[in-house]
């Protein structure tokens, strides 16, 4: 086994090389959503709960300007509130410990003292603030279910080997998750976002499905799913998704 290159091992090592983010250095919405995802994963929250938190966060800052509020408090509260909305309850103590430790990497968990109680009060108050800012409309329709349904339908066009070889589903769900970093996800309908993520994955792997290129009468592969998506709009969303990765580069 000496001469064998273990690709998995390489990948593991590579991923380990990404240094832990220091959130205290810069503060902006992109980084705050990264914070939501990091804390959400540490809290073992469901993917939809984390997505809800990201959307709540973006909607909150769409209602107001970002200078007046601490983005990490809003981020932590969005996570906590998302747990309640999605019926995936997160304990407030866990949320506080995880967010605190993620912000201050080396520090010990908070003692049950003033600092902790103040933080808890802040989250409880901010939760009501977010709810009122969003006019109590905190139920969100996600693109995920549409995307799953569309992918299941597309699967029928592939042979089993092809489908297993090309990580279409994985890539499109990765795009969807990453698109949550950008507030522009609020501007498009969930169905359109789902189609755009899949189409981007198709483009990335150079996969041609029937009607990849718009054919007669503007029929495309996704027409059967959403009949109100124009090509221009689709490409606009795809560009927005790709821009997310440019933003990540800017951060580094």
């Amino acid at each position: 086994m000496k001469d064998v290159i273990d690709v998995m091992q390489l990948q593991r090592e590579k991923s380990r090389q990404v240094p832990a983010m220091d959130y205290t250095e810069t503060e902006n919405n992109f980084i705050a959503v990264r914070f939501i995802f990091e804390c959400g994963i540490k809290l073992d929250a469901q993917p939809l709960t984390i997505a809800t938190a990201a959307v709540l966060y973006h909607r909150f800052f769409k209602e107001t300007d970002s200078t007046g509020y601490d983005s990490y408090l809003i981020a932590a509260t969005a996570l906590y509130l998302a747990g309640k909305v999605k019926d995936d309850p997160l304990k407030i103590r866990d949320v506080i410990n995880v967010t605190h430790n993620t912000l201050h990497r080396a520090s010990a968990p908070l003692e049950l003292g003033d600092e902790y109680w103040n933080m808890r009060d802040a989250i409880v108050q901010a939760e009501l603030l977010i709810m009122r800012m969003l006019k109590f409309e905190v139920t969100i329709v996600h693109p995920h279910k549409y995307q799953l349904h569309y992918l299941k339908s597309l699967e029928g066009w592939f042979s089993k080997e092809e489908w297993n070889k090309i990580p279409l589903a994985k890539a499109s769900f990765a795009f969807l998750q990453d698109f949550h970093f950008d507030a522009s996800i609020l501007d498009y309908s969930p169905q359109h976002v789902a189609v755009a993520c899949i189409n981007l994955a198709l483009q990335c792997y150079g996969v041609q499905v029937p009607y990849t290129d718009e054919g007669d009468g503007g029929v495309a592969w996704y027409s059967v799913f959403t009949d109100d998506l124009q090509k221009d709009k689709l490409w606009e969303i795809m560009e927005k998704i790709m821009e997310v990765y440019d933003k990540e580069k800017d951060e580094k």
Binding site: Y23, T24, E25, E27, T64, T67, G68, Y69, D70, S71, Y72, L73, I74, H100, L103, H104, L110, D114, E115, W117, N118, M119, D121, A122, A126, L129, R132, M133
Partner: peptide, 29 residues
């Protein structure tokens, strides 16, 4: 009230000003 809350900059940034989270929350408290 939300306006009051907003203008009082209760939720001001704690990271950019370099304050520790604890002192920030203490102020809020």
């Amino acid at each position: 009230d939300i306006k009051v809350l907003h203008k009082s900059s209760t939720f001001s940034s704690f990271t950019s000003s370099g304050h520790k989270i604890g002192s920030w929350f203490a102020t809020l408290g």
